[in-house]
Nucleic acid binder design. Structure first.
Lengths: 154, 154
DNA sequence: CCAACTTGCGTGACATGTCAACTATTCCCG
DNA sequence: CGGGAATAGTTGACATGTCACGCAAGTTGG
């Protein structure tokens, strides 16, 4: 445990950055979730699903594609879509090209729900996150996250 | 939806940074969790609890304090500690000063588990995160996260 | 063709997290 | 003191996420 070669521990600076990163990663989503729930019937995962659906012109995305976009496990998405369908936010629709496949489709209710919720949500993101950073910092942060993400891909 | 005043949407740069931030926040913990599980019997939450306990000299922390440190809900911690106790990683101990309170105490098994798991975990953090960033960037990132965290506090 | 394999998705059992209510102490203040 | 409010922690019902498996439809090589 005392050999440095076998356990390359973090420097003080790294440790501090790492702890803050973790803290932020816990607190920021928690805040977004609370505020969403407070003024809409949506959870943060609900919101994420709906965002992906509204990204498509017809509000209609294949399950596998959606899972890929969200980086969710298939079964998680399957369960979640089932629950959202029960609440009328989305519907499932068979895929004609591929008998196995199916689409998740945004309903009018779902579209209305996200259109109602989005403005306040964006305001929260701005207030809690971007307002704390300068324009330069936002750019830098974008570059850093990109580099780390690229590394994760391999 | 077309009025800019009512919905202050994000700029392209902000949106890109935000999406990457979200992606990273999903993928990085997922990776850490997978690798932890692969070569230790610990989950990421288990690990986080054990880290807090090893931070204390006697490996002995009050439940409320632990919840505060981890930024967890009390009941979550209570459930989790119960499960960890069942696996022999920790024990509960009554607090003499305050009849209501109790301590979570690290067992020999728990200490051994985290000592075994930590080196590989740190290596993963370094490889996946810090190796992608320069020293300057690490410092900058620390400053940014600090500013955002400070904002969340209010 | 057709048997083996792959792919897209669902399901059920279980692990984990949340919320509201509860018990048992301790605190505070008349 | 004594009684109400606050605090520490637990509990149970429920929501959510994971894992292993199943099944049906598609694909591929002989």
């Amino acid at each position: 445990m005392t050999t440095q070669t076998s356990t390359p521990w973090l420097t003080d600076t790294e440790q501090q950055t790492w702890r803050r990163w973790l803290a932020l990663n816990a607190q920021l989503p928690a805040l977004l979730h609370r505020e969403l729930q407070r003024d809409s019937e949506l959870s943060l995962p609900d919101f994420d699903v709906l965002v992906q659906l509204t990204d498509d012109d017809r509000g209609r995305v294949r399950i596998a594609q959606l899972a890929e976009d969200l980086q969710w496990e298939r079964s998680r998405l399957s369960h979640h879509v089932t629950r959202m369908a029960r609440r009328g936010l989305v519907e499932k629709e068979d895929c004609l090209d591929d008998g196995r496949g199916s689409f998740v489709v945004l309903t009018a209710t779902g579209r209305s729900a996200i259109e109602q919720a989005a403005p306040a949500h964006v305001r929260t993101v701005r207030r809690a996150f971007f307002d704390a950073l300068s324009d330069d910092e936002v750019v830098l942060l974008g570059e850093m996250t990109e580099k780390v993400l690229a590394r994760l891909g391999s």
